[in-house]
């Protein structure tokens, strides 16, 4: 699993949140800053921006560079063109790979959200035997290196006949994204006050009705966050997609990119155009979900 799928559960931290209190550093003007330290800050910002954005820029500019395959290596496209994209989607077969990846990711997200929510409600709302064991298991299982499971899962998928099929990938990615999704959603479910549920019961609602009209809307933000993570897990995954797929009609984007390492050297323009196409949806998701992600981190870090 990749860093985005991070369990950000620091609830055991010694500090406690202090929502009402003013928090240090928030307003830099509180400490009158000297010109020198502000220049230092500016420099820091510059360095961070360059380090973070440079690879992104290089990818995009090369994708637009019509001369990338002719050995052009520059920071600015020498010849702006969409040819690389056209090639990638047309002859490169990327349209197909994008569709496959999208199907796999959506399948993973939908199935994952449903299963994780149900499980999260179980562990957050019910006291039952082995509840702690289940939680510990989910936590530990999250740490299992999926790279170590390629061999047995390949053999299992083979005997089930789901090798070389998108369904096989969906099921595998579902398994990978579940532990984190359950663990995160559990926090969101737990933070919905029981009083609200009880009010619903007093109004005569059944458990199911309460679930749909009280619980679900309140944990929706959590679902968004876990869905983003599931999507990214499925979209980015490489090793299983590489191993499971034989027919290139079934390739996902991560594997499809390898085609541009051709017989006659690497087609960097196409490779970067493909990379850009892969990266954009993920970036859009990250930026859209930025608030939620950071909130999630804060919540995770300070939740009592």
């Amino acid at each position: 699993m990749t860093p985005p799928a991070a369990p950000t559960e620091f609830r055991k931290a010694t500090f406690r949140p202090s929502p009402g209190r003013k928090v240090a550093f928030l307003n830099p003007r509180d400490h009158r800053r000297s010109l020198g330290s502000r220049a230092l800050l500016g420099l820091g910002v510059g360095v961070v921006l360059v380090f973070t954005l440079f690879p992104v820029w290089l990818m995009v500019s090369t994708a637009f560079n019509g001369r990338a395959n002719a050995g052009s290596r520059s920071l600015w496209p020498e010849d702006w063109t969409l040819d690389n994209f056209a090639f990638v989607i047309g002859e490169g077969g990327f349209g197909r790979y994008l569709t496959n990846s999208l199907l796999v990711a959506l399948g993973t997200v939908l199935a994952g959200a449903l299963l994780a929510l149900l499980a999260a409600v179980a562990v957050a709302r019910f006291r039952f035997r082995f509840r702690t064991s289940v939680l510990v298991m989910i936590l530990i299982i999250q740490m299992v290196p999926v790279e170590a499971l390629v061999i047995p899962l390949f053999i299992q998928a083979r005997s089930l006949g789901v090798l070389d099929s998108l369904v096989g990938l969906v099921v595998v990615y579902l398994a990978f994204s579940l532990p984190f999704a359950i663990w995160t959603l559990r926090g969101f479910v737990a933070s919905v006050p029981v009083e609200l549920e009880e009010a619903a019961y007093l109004d005569g609602a059944s458990w199911g009705r309460m679930f749909w009209s009280v619980l679900l809307p309140l944990v929706a933000p959590g679902l968004v966050a876990t869905s983003v993570f599931s999507f990214i897990t499925a979209w980015n995954e490489f090793i299983f997609a590489l191993t499971f797929m034989a027919d290139q009609d079934n390739y996902t984007v991560a594997v499809g990119l390898r085609r541009f390492f051709g017989q006659y050297g690497t087609d960097w323009g196409a490779l970067m155009a493909g990379s850009t196409l892969i990266t954009i949806p993920v970036m859009v998701f990250f930026v859209i979900a930025q608030k939620r992600l950071t909130d999630g981190l804060v919540a995770g870090a300070v939740k009592g």
């Binding site: 990749t2 860093p3 985005p4 910002v45 961070v48 921006l49 380090f51 973070t52 954005l53 690879p55 992104v56 290089l58 990818m59 090369t62 990214i232 979209w235 980015n236 490489f238 991560a254 990119l257 960097w268 490779l271 970067m272 990379s275 850009t276 892969i278 990266t279 993920v282 970036m283 998701f285 990250f286 930026v287 930025q290 992600l293 950071t294």
Partner: peptide
């Protein structure tokens, strides 16, 4: 400024391992 830098950081985080690796290899 913090918002801008945070967004930039998110972009770095968002690059899939596959494409990120290709960019560094290219570089």
């Amino acid at each position: 400024t913090r918002g801008i830098v945070t967004t930039a950081i998110m972009l770095a985080w968002a690059i899939p391992a596959v494409t990120g690796t290709y960019v560094w290899v290219f570089l």
